[in-house]
Simulated assay, not measured.
Amino acid sequence: MKIVLFSDVHANLPALDAFFKDIDTKEYDAIYCLGDLVGYNVWPNEVIAEIRRRKIPTIAGNHDIKVKKLRVDQHLNDEEALVNYAYHLGTETSRQYLKNLPCHIKVEFKQNDLPLNLMLVHGSNRSVSEYVLEDLDETYVLELMQESGAHIFCCGHTHKPYHRVIESEGQHLHVINIGALGKPKDGDVRGCYVMLTIDENSSLDNPDSITVEFCRVEYDVEKAAKAVEESPLPNEFADRLRKAY
């Protein structure tokens, strides 16, 4: 089973288009999005439309939830309103879609009659805005995984990809941050997604039997950055795309 995982598109249509062009050349069995379709750029409706057209299971990120809470009639006359400009671009159809996204997705496998559970969250199973960083205390991470019943815990939100294996009671548990497709923060401007492989030989006894491949996708960063600069959004958002911070 090859599973494509991506997160944090942030209304970056050029990055999303490049991502689909890339995965359309590959073999995979399932695909999931870990949230934050909107924010920071000007194409939320186009991004949502393409996700829906492809019928990709998606969970709500903190920016998707923010759209539900903002008043659509807010006047853009101060700095905070300009930062929030991206959230006011959504059509009513897009807003309704975001309102109905689930908070997490759990996929349960049986490998050699033993459970192997995949948990997909945006921040964590405790909070959509929690940062599960690579150096987060191991005991705390294990608590998150035990609460959610996860053997493979996949998250986004930090925009910094990593794969961490934690040994607990003879099992090797996997924590995977997907990184960001549309707004990387790890110094690499290319979009990032994950190809996760779980097959009949995958086992929690062998940490190498579950394969995590981080894939990078080149896209037209300048097009995305200029779209920001030509909008009421802060120019800093364009700088972040160009420098991936």
Rank of each mutant, 00 (worst) to 15 (best):
V212Y: 10
P115A: 04
M1R: 09
N84G: 03
E50W: 03
E108P: 03
H75P: 00
Y219H: 14
V141P: 00
Y28G: 02
Y85C: 01
T139H: 07
D199I: 06
K2T: 07
I198E: 01
P44A: 11
D64G: 08
R95Q: 02
V175N: 06
D36C: 11
P115M: 08
H75M: 13
I152E: 07
H159G: 03
Y193T: 03
H122T: 06
D208V: 02
K183I: 06
S168R: 10
K55E: 15
H122A: 10
I176Y: 08
N235R: 11
L116T: 04
Q111R: 13
N117K: 04
Q111I: 14
L116E: 05
F214H: 09
C155I: 10
I56N: 09
N125H: 15
H122I: 05
H88C: 04
K21M: 09
V38F: 10
T197E: 05
L120E: 00
V194H: 09
F6R: 08
A180I: 04
D186P: 13
K106Y: 03
I152Q: 08
M195G: 00
V228E: 05
H159K: 01
E27Y: 09
S148T: 05
N206P: 01
A15W: 05
L37V: 10
L116P: 03
A225G: 09
R126T: 07
T197R: 05
F20L: 12
T139Q: 11
K226C: 02
G123D: 13
Q171H: 14
E169Q: 15
L37G: 04
V9K: 02
H75C: 01
K183Q: 14
E218R: 07
G149A: 02
Q171R: 15
V47P: 12
K99L: 07
V212H: 10
H122Y: 12
I59A: 15
N201R: 12
E108C: 06
V107G: 01
A180Y: 09
A15R: 14
L233Q: 03
C155L: 06
R53G: 08
L16M: 11
L196A: 03
P184V: 01
L241Q: 08
R240I: 12
D29E: 14
D208W: 00
S202I: 00
I178G: 02
N77F: 08
H75W: 04
R126N: 14
L241M: 14
H174I: 14
G170T: 13
L204Y: 06
T158F: 02
N177I: 12
